[in-house]
């Protein structure tokens, strides 16, 4: 029997369901936790922040969980605005609360660069959040080349096999009331493909998307270069 009972996944991506790498990574972990007997629920942060009722429901779920997981894409070197806002709300609510059992907090970050190290500052911020919100830090899992997953399910074979293995190990540890093991952290950071291949495919993809959208010749546009741009300064 698992020593943790309830896990809550927060998906920090603003993308639609099925297109989010954060959702794919978080959902895989939740499925595995479920197989260990942990009850799991998931919230898309952008939907939860739309109305006060939804926000309150999310905060209630977080207040009652044994494990909080935040899966998010890296935006300009750190957490996206929505994920930051949600952590602000959780920390503000949790500070005065005393609980019999201290919940865990695990963060899963993915970035569009091939090197997983780009996520490190964001994960350090998550660790600080855990300390301020009175949670136990379960670790930070960093994925590079997140664009290669692009919402596809994580599989135990093929390109994502190290990611799947890392999440398997993490789920087993968390279900046993332990943080993510170092092996999982290392496996998660293992490149899914050579950096040169990823950047070649990525650059090709930008060209193709622009071509489909009819703006290939305008890819280098500089709309804010106009000399008559007027900025009001307060």
């Amino acid at each position: 029997m698992s020593t943790i009972e309830r896990a809550v996944l927060l998906i920090g991506s603003a993308k639609r369901s099925g297109e989010s790498t954060s959702e794919a990574l978080g959902s895989y972990l939740m499925t595995k936790l479920n197989s260990h007997g942990v009850g799991a629920s998931a919230f898309a942060v952008h939907r939860a922040l739309r109305t006060p009722d939804r926000t309150a429901a999310l905060l209630d779920a977080v207040a009652g969980c044994d494990l909080l997981v935040l899966a998010f894409p890296l935006y300009v070197d750190t957490l996206p605005r929505l994920a930051t806002q949600m952590l602000e709300l959780i920390a503000a609510r949790r500070r005065p609360v005393q609980r019999a059992r201290t919940p865990w907090f695990l963060a899963i970050a993915n970035c569009g660069f091939p090197e997983a190290e780009h996520n490190d500052v964001a994960l350090a911020i998550c660790e600080q959040f855990a300390a301020e919100a009175g949670m136990r830090w379960a670790g930070g899992l960093a994925v590079g080349a997140g664009g290669a997953i692009h919402g596809d399910a994580v599989h135990e074979r093929g390109m994502t096999h190290n990611v799947a293995r890392a999440l398997d190990l993490t789920a087993a540890a968390l279900a046993a009331d332990q943080p993510a093991p170092p092996q999982a952290v290392t496996l998660m950071r293992t490149p899914m493909m050579p950096a040169k291949l990823y950047t070649f495919m990525g650059n090709l993809g930008w060209h193709r998307m622009a071509q489909v959208n009819g703006v290939w010749r305008r890819l280098g546009d500089r709309p804010f270069s106009t000399s008559d741009l007027k900025i009001e300064r307060g």
């Binding site: 603003a14 952008h46 996206p80 998307m209 709309p223």
Partner: peptide
């Protein structure tokens, strides 16, 4: 909030 749609790169560049 940023939608992460990349339209500012591939639909209306910049």
């Amino acid at each position: 909030y940023c939608l992460g749609c990349f339209d500012c790169w591939t639909k209306s560049p910049g």
